[in-house]
């Protein structure tokens, strides 16, 4: 479904992504891990069209999308959320989601119906009339997901939607992610909490300093010396 081929990205003189290649298949949940500053969000920005890759191509459902704009990529069924949430602050939760639905629905009416449905799915119906700026962190993250879902994506990129949640909220979010996967949405998920990402992903990609250090099943990745090194420092793996 998604194929990333030899993608690299530089900021000024600094390589932030170096020759990244991997594939994501329909129906999978793929985790993306790596220490802070590894380039995870940048990879999402490149895939979703916010940045142009310096080299390499990205194919989504067979089409090269590496030169498309974010809006056109979204309309093809690939949507992303933002790590630093970007709600429409002065609009209600409901209207936030309606806007998400509009690009795929025929008219306002249809988009409103769709939004109702999505709010029900993510269990935010009681908060539909709150303004974007008045939401808690957990609700902002949830709204990010809801809006993205409203665009009817085939592939959804989730950027740390579980960061900063309390254990209860975390549990709900995990359940939601699983629910989405069951609905047939392919998921590509950035997450820092190892137990969580290991638990939900079918496969995991690990980045460090812009390099793809490992791809594989959660077990493989967890035991990979390069991953341990990236997270825990050289000394730890040395012996």
């Amino acid at each position: 479904m998604l194929e990333v081929r030899n993608v690299s990205k530089w900021f000024g003189g600094n390589p932030v992504l170096k020759d990244i290649s991997f594939e994501i298949h329909k129906g999978e949940i793929v985790g993306l891990i790596g220490p802070n500053g590894a380039g995870k969000t940048t990879l999402f920005n490149v895939i979703s069209g916010f940045y142009r890759p310096k080299t390499g191509d990205i194919f989504f459902q067979g089409e090269n999308i590496s030169r498309l704009t974010p809006e056109d990529i979204c309309r093809r069924g690939l949507c992303r959320t933002f790590q630093i949430t970007k709600p429409f602050s002065n609009l209600t939760v409901f209207k936030n989601v309606v806007i998400g639905a509009l690009s795929r629905e025929k008219g306002i009416r249809e988009a409103e119906n769709k939004a109702e449905e999505i709010l029900e799915l993510v269990e935010m119906t009681p908060k539909r009339d709150l303004l974007g700026r008045s939401l808690t962190i957990a609700d902002r993250k949830r709204l990010e997901v809801a809006r993205a879902l409203a665009t009817s994506p085939d592939l959804l990129l989730l950027d740390e939607v579980m960061a900063g949640l309390n254990p209860n909220e975390l549990k709900e979010m995990i359940a939601l992610v699983k629910k989405l996967s069951q609905r047939g949405i392919t998921l590509f998920v950035i997450e820092h909490i190892m137990t969580v990402i290991m638990g939900i992903s079918h496969r995991i990609i690990a980045l460090d300093h812009g390099e793809q250090i490992c791809v594989g099943s959660p077990c493989d990745v967890a035991e990979d010396p390069k991953v341990l090194e990236a997270y825990l420092g050289e000394d730890y793996v040395a012996p």
Partner: peptide
Amino acid sequence: DAARALGVR
């Protein structure tokens, strides 16, 4: 940014 990510041209 959010608008574009949601497919708004």
